[in-house]
Design a protein around this nucleic acid. Structure first.
Lengths: 166, 166
DNA sequence: TATTGTTATACTCTATAACTATA
DNA sequence: TATAGTTATAGAGTATAACAATA
């Protein structure tokens, strides 16, 4: 449990980190803005999935997800096949072109980070990544979940595998 | 120096942290969006300054700064007095109402963070804040500065006091 | 001429609400 | 009735470019 001044400082740094994110955004290919890149990254990491699952991983409303997905589908980077188990749903999957685009994204972001963090040790990068991951977990899925009381201890534990590894 | 996979993971977490920022944004007062809050916070922390300095601290273009400043000025939270040293400039300063608004912002963000990070130790919060601050520094002022070569070693060191403590 | 700041325009991201198709 | 997904609309943030006033 920390003091108020510490929280204010953390809040300030959370705001300031926006500059880093904007800098990362500037190196993206012209027709692949941040939203598209996030879709490709998550599909590359977790494999095929439905819209609802992707929206959960992105932590945005499904309407937003729908737009991003339409964008990458228009460019042939993913395919949307019908879900045999539920005709309302569609299965999203990277195409070969999508994998190539994702490789290009990885190269660009890794190159930028390697340049900017050239004086960071392997361990420091790992520490920051770990703490940011934990921060994300501590905030949980704040869009849909009740402010602070999980439905049941059981389903909560079950959901964790679904909602933590973003 | 870290490996590519580590950079990709860090990039992923930088993207994911957006959910935390959006969550913080949701608790702001209706007429005080994030941009306004950032202006008030920086004026509260560093005292009166000119537009150009504020734009630098915000790490955004001055045109963006101008809009945010106009918003908070319209609400009486800051005053813009002419700069006697340069008639093109204006000095920005928090008003009493601005200080009150800033206090309200601090209360809200601290309350949210205290709730979400209730199981974090004081030290862990400090570690994350420190690493995020350093990350911000490592990216430097990427908008205006040359990609990787500071003008002169001398002026670089001088500027650090101005541009680091964001 | 160069710089400070403002305004107009355009683009990205997000959320809410209305709508459809299916469960 | 409820859920999966789409689309329309609106609001916030940002960057570029054109502009005015001053250095």
């Amino acid at each position: 449990m920390a003091e108020q001044a510490q929280y204010e400082e953390l809040a300030r740094q959370l705001t300031a980190i926006g500059a880093v994110k904007r800098d990362m955004g500037r190196i993206l290919p012209p027709d692949c803005p941040g939203g598209s890149a996030a879709v490709l990254t998550l599909l590359g990491r977790y494999g095929e999935m439905r819209m609802s699952r992707l929206a959960e991983l992105l932590s945005v409303d499904m309407s937003v997800t729908s737009r991003h997905v339409a964008h990458v589908a228009d460019r042939g980077w993913i395919e949307r096949s019908p879900d045999p188990a539920d005709k309302r749903s569609r299965i999203l999957r990277l195409t070969a072109a999508g994998h190539e685009q994702l490789d290009e994204l990885s190269r660009r972001t890794s190159r930028l980070l390697a340049d900017r963090l050239s004086d960071w040790s392997d361990d420091e990068v790992g520490q920051l990544t770990r703490l940011m991951t934990r921060l994300r977990e501590s905030f949980g899925d704040c869009r849909t979940a009740a402010p602070h009381r999980p439905p049941h201890p059981h389903s909560y534990a079950t959901e964790l595998t679904t909602r933590t590894p973003v």
